[in-house]
Structures are given as structure tokens and as C-alpha cells.
Design a protein around this nucleic acid. Structure first.
Lengths: 135, 135
DNA sequence: TCTGTCCTACGAAGATCCTCGTTGACAACC
DNA sequence: GGTTGTCAACGAGGATCTTCGTAGGACAGA
């Protein structure tokens, strides 16, 4: 029974749990040292654990680092929009039968939005529609 | 260094990769036997693997089964909307800084939508806004 | 210099996930 | 009865993910 190789199974920019935790901090802050990332994650994640994850992420070309004093400062290489696009695609296909509408409906059902937020979301749709018409 | 127990770490209705593959089939079809699920997933997943995953999912109360002839027919217990809501929350928080707008923008950027789809998405926002005004 | 602190590096162990081989039950068909 | 096909059960093995212990370098202050 064939099983795909580890490489081909993993689609691009898909992060494991912990990896995503760490990427999330880097996306928010723009960059971070091990200690900074750990501060955000909380004390229940070991220092060396965070370090190791960052090294793993570096091995996957998801982050890079620069020397800063004695420490390393890590920068994300993968854009959050790219990772988000992939994650959304997966959620949309696996859970919402490929329907963006169903996805949106669930999104707005699970949270209250202010008029301003909804207005801005509407204009996002407007822009998408204009782009559509241009073609 | 404390590490949370396996139980508390796992938020509700979060599925692993394979689990989600299988739940996805059940959500689409409404129910399925091992053989049916496997047909959808493709031959490269072993029969006993699918069976095992269904048994694991049953242990997590994500599915239940009924006898059907000699086989078991499995039914989802977790709603796709619930799983989807959780998944979206996670993606929104970890990747899009908690911003639904950013999420929506990425969604519409990654796919072309017809006028009709956009119209329906707009009306989803309308309904959300009405609900907002009622309060 | 000695000690404590902060850092990286590395490897190995533990946890979880996924896979499948094997067994035994049952039924249909020869 | 024997053979074949379909099924659930179970357990073990491998792969992957996550954690941390330990070592060693660099630096600051006593």
C-alpha cells in the first residue's frame, strides 16, 4: 500500500501547531529573538523548545535570522497571507464543501461585528467585483 | 517545565489531518461505511487505516455507528459548522491577527467569484448587520 | 580568575499520529 | 467441506512532532 513520501504529503507553507504559534508571533511583531517569542507564548513553553522550533523553521526556509549582540533575531520569510490563503483553502474545501459563502456565513455567525467592520468587508467585496468586471 | 496534559491542550473539535479527511467525507455524504469512505479518499489509504481512524473518531465522540448488515455505517456527531467555526477562529487569530477583514480579503484574492456569489456574500453581511441593529 | 547569566547547538526521549499486518467472524459460492 | 470475499478488532511499528537536558561559548561583575 503506497504512502506518499514525507515531502510530497506536506503542502507548502503548512505549519504544525507549535510552528504556527511561533510564526504567529513573528508575523505580529515583525521579528523576534527566542526570548521575545517565548515571552509572548508564555512560560509553559521551554526556552530551548522555542529555539529548536525556530531552528526547524529556519531549516524549512520559513524564517531567517540575523545576529544581534549575542543573540539571534528571527524574521519570517513566509508571508502570513500565503500561509493564510493555504489554510483557508483547506478549511473551505474540507469543511465547507468548497463554499466561500458557507465559510463567510460561519464567520459572521461566530462573532459580532460593528457597522464599520461590516462596511469595510463590504468594500472588500466591491473591489473584488470591480476586478471581476475589468476582465 | 509544565506541559499541559494531552486532554487540556486539545481544544474541542480539532481534527488531525487524516481525521479531517474522513470527517470531510462524512459531512459531504451524511454517513459512510469504511469502504465508502475509502472509495472517496482513494486507494492509497489502507482499508484498515480508515477503519482505525473511524474508531479513533468514535472514541472522541466525533462519530457514531450503526450496524448495517455485517458492516458499520458511521455518522458524524460533530457539526461541520462547529468544526469550521473553530478552525476559522484559529486561522483568524494565529494568521490574520484576529482580523476578519484581512481574512476575507485573502479569501477573495485567492479565488475568482462570480457576481452571483459576491451578491450572496453581500447579503450574508446584510443579514449580520440587521441582527446587529436589532440588539 | 571565578561565578552567574544569557545565549546557541545538539541529540535523544516522549507524545502523538498514521499506517498496516494479522486474526477471526461470517456468508456465499463451488 | 473448502475456498473466497468482506468485515471488525487489535496491536505493533514507523513517522512525525514536541519537549527538554546537557554542553559549551561569550560576557559582565565581584
Amino acid at each position: 500500500m503506497a504512502s506518499e513520501s514525507a515531502e510530497s504529503r506536506r503542502e507548502p507553507n503548512r505549519f504544525t501547531h507549535r510552528e504556527l504559534d511561533i510564526m504567529s508571533v513573528l508575523w505580529r511583531r515583525g521579528s523576534g529573538t527566542v526570548a521575545e517569542v517565548r515571552d509572548v507564548l508564555g512560560e509553559d513553553v521551554g526556552y530551548t523548545t522555542v529555539l529548536k522550533m525556530l531552528q526547524i523553521l529556519e531549516g524549512k526556509n520559513a524564517v531567517r535570522h540575523e545576529k544581534e549582540g549575542r543573540a539571534h533575531r528571527y524574521y519570517p520569510l513566509v508571508e502570513s497571507a500565503d500561509a493564510g490563503g493555504n489554510a483557508l483553502k483547506r478549511v473551505m474545501n474540507k469543511i465547507f464543501h468548497g463554499s466561500a459563502e458557507l465559510l463567510l456565513a460561519t464567520l459572521v455567525e461566530n462573532r459580532e461585528f460593528s457597522d464599520e467592520e461590516i462596511e469595510r468587508m463590504r468594500s472588500i467585496l466591491d473591489r473584488a467585483q470591480e476586478k471581476e468586471e475589468d476582465r
